[in-house]
Design a protein around this nucleic acid. Structure first.
Lengths: 193, 193
DNA sequence: CTATTTTTGTAATGATCATTACAAAATAAA
DNA sequence: TTTATTTTGTAATGATCATTACAAAAATAG
């Protein structure tokens, strides 16, 4: 293959860009910010991501869809498939302050892009419905095997968890406090007993 | 008083600006958008709001703090102070599609401004903690008078409601569907029985 | 070594942004 | 009326934005 070799790994560019987008959102992030964060100049960024800023953002967002797949595989190896989900939520309380402030890039995007960019809003919404589907399967599995007593439909409980996830990412911004968060998370997870 | 008279009422300017900020957020709203929405030129807007776009946004946000006070007065006239809160949540399901997409300007601002503008983030956070305080008093009152059986501390339940509010404003964007929302809201309000 | 191809950094480019300058308009006071 | 004062709409202003143009750099292929 001819041509000057890549300095920057494409995937690493996406991850470094994701960090900035995650913290500042789409509109408050400039190409200069992305250049600084990635270490790549505008030339490189536009050569790699022909769609420019928006394509880079899309890739950063869709990365979470890939991450979800990894979590799905972990679930499927569990006896009680709801246990890793509960643990995921409980672990949120232990996160560092910056992580609390960042929240969730998918929820952030849903909020930022609604009434602004229908495509990106829809992409964020779809990642959340994917998450919901994963929750639903895990809950149904756990109910079938007696890990959950509640007769509430798995569908409803899954939507409950997605709602909680979105709410928790607001709460942790207001109260980035381990004790408070642990207590609130425990309360919310009671419906899965 | 000397001088050319006002065409635009200050409060109406704020409310018209609020509508645009509520839908599009701070960064995606241009002064041209605000000029169109309010019917006032840049000259008028800067003459009225010396702080420019940011002051106008602040006023639009703080309007919700005033609205909260109105709700507080309604609460204090109720026998069961938690009843109007439950009703408020249940009524969300009946809102029109655009209202679902808009969500809550306070939660939107908390999300948009975290890691971007500490002042505005804090203002949004404070409106939510004010809301929490209002919930807490109402819940404590209801518990004392036997309207709520749950022994869970009012403080914890109030934070639960704020978390739910933030989550619900994501859920309604994904499912702007009366049946779905009614079901999920009813489930979440069960902790207040 | 030469030609070709791709990446890279930098420096335009043109659009859009928030803000300001300013003169005309419209009132009250004198 | 005349003068003073405030509002209004429009047209600069200068900054910043995303994007593109382009030439140097760095590799491979012939």
């Amino acid at each position: 293959m001819k041509g000057r070799p890549n300095i920057h790994d494409d995937q690493e560019l996406v991850l470094k860009a994701q960090e900035v987008f995650w913290q500042r959102g789409y509109h408050a992030t400039s190409l200069s910010d992305l250049s600084t964060a990635t270490g790549a100049g505008a030339g490189s960024l536009y050569n790699t991501f022909k769609g420019g800023k928006k394509e880079l953002f899309r890739k950063a967002l869709q990365q979470r869809s890939a991450d979800l797949l990894t979590f799905k595989q972990k679930l499927e190896q569990s006896e009680n498939q709801v246990a890793p989900i509960k643990q995921f939520f409980l672990d949120i309380a232990d996160a560092d302050p910056i992580t609390h402030q960042k929240g969730c890039i998918v929820v952030n995007t849903l909020t930022e892009m609604t009434c602004v960019d229908e495509d990106l809003k829809q992409e964020a919404a779809e990642i959340l419905t994917e998450t919901e589907k994963l929750y639903k399967q895990a809950i149904a599995h756990a109910q079938k095997h007696g890990y959950i007593a509640s007769k509430t439909p798995a569908d409803t409980l899954a939507k409950y968890l997605v709602t909680f996830w979105c709410g928790l990412n607001a709460l942790r911004r207001i109260y980035p406090d381990k004790k408070v968060l642990k207590r609130q998370i425990a309360l919310q997870l009671q419906v899965l007993d």
